[in-house]
Design a protein around this nucleic acid. Structure first.
Length: 297
DNA sequence: AATCCGTGGAC
DNA sequence: TGTCCAAGGAT
């Protein structure tokens, strides 16, 4: 069966799409600083970019790399320094995991970020996406890089759907393998270009189809941009949650490098019981530490 | 598999 | 103004 008639591909010529998107990327790639950095710089950027937009990462990433240019530099310092430097990027446990990853790289990999997918996957805070991203972006390797952008791009081009499912399925990872060009260089380029397309053109809210290099090949566009019809995509609750409470508490600790009294800390949240529970969680997670009546990072 | 885990910008 | 969503990972 030819590629043009294979129903699994929706009549899509995948190599043609890859070629067009890669050509588009060659002319339109953003000049992001981690794209001209070291493997460590790439790793740091990937941690920071987990659920955090590029625009908010640029400044903290530069400061981080200035202060800790290598994994050894970070591993030498206490975890609290990483949490402090993380600032308001969100999900501060990522700072802890980044410190743990740096420590593992220092002790188990001679201070060099590994280029092997399995070795990367074994690092704290590195999952399937991040391992593939580092292998591909930092080392030019051939790996399936499947993030929210790529998932949305493929859902639209090939499935004709506005949005992919809530989380990546085994079928999507298999399909990602089928999309992957044979040679390392083209595969690495595709990994970056597909993500870039999703990030700046094929966006979730307002896709810029007029700027898309594969608009005439896109099934979603051909079908007239049908709205999402699957199960409603539920947003995360926020008001009054432990997450909000933890955020408030940790922010106060962050603002006081010399420590905050437990009593003063618990007073900033209206629900005493929830504040106590949240503080206990932060302490258990290692995001905060208590010495007598005082709490520090 | 479903939930939890921060923060801020865009609309 | 409130909702949505952003280069996910761990449990």
């Amino acid at each position: 069966m030819s590629a043009a008639t294979d129903p699994d591909r929706g009549g899509l010529d995948r190599p043609q799409v890859v070629g067009r998107v890669n050509d588009w990327f060659a002319l339109n790639a953003r000049d992001l600083p981690w794209r001209r950095s070291t493997p460590w710089g790439v790793l740091v950027s990937e941690f920071m970019l987990q659920q955090t937009p590029v625009a908010r990462v640029l400044v903290p990433w530069a400061a981080w790399m200035e202060r800790w240019p290598t994994p050894d530099d970070l591993a030498t310092e206490p975890p609290g320094a990483a949490v402090a430097a993380w600032g308001r990027l969100g999900y501060p446990r990522r700072a802890l995991r980044l410190h743990q990853a740096a420590t593992a790289i220092a002790t188990e990999h001679g201070g060099q970020v590994p280029d092997d997918l399995d070795a990367l996957l074994a690092l704290p805070g590195v999952g399937r996406y991040t391992a593939a991203a580092i292998a591909s972006f930092a080392f030019g390797g051939r790996a399936v890089v499947l993030d929210t952008n790529v998932r949305r791009v493929l859902a639209r081009i090939e499935d004709g759907q506005q949005f992919p499912s809530a989380s990546a399925t085994a079928a999507e990872w298999r399909r990602g393998e089928q999309w992957l060009p044979d040679d390392d260089a083209t595969a690495a380029r595709w990994a970056a270009s597909a993500m870039e397309l999703g990030a700046v053109v094929c966006t979730a809210r307002s896709p810029r189809c007029e700027q898309c290099p594969v608009a005439e090949l896109c099934r979603w566009r051909t079908l007239g941009h049908p709205a999402h019809d699957g199960p409603p995509r539920k947003g995360q609750a926020w008001q009054g949650t432990d997450r909000q409470c933890r955020g408030v508490l940790l922010d106060l600790v962050r603002q006081h490098p010399d420590g905050v009294a437990v009593e003063a800390l618990l007073e900033v949240w209206h629900d005493r019981g929830q504040a106590e529970r949240s503080l206990a969680g932060l302490l258990a997670d290692g995001l905060a530490h208590q010495a007598g009546p005082m709490v520090t990072l």
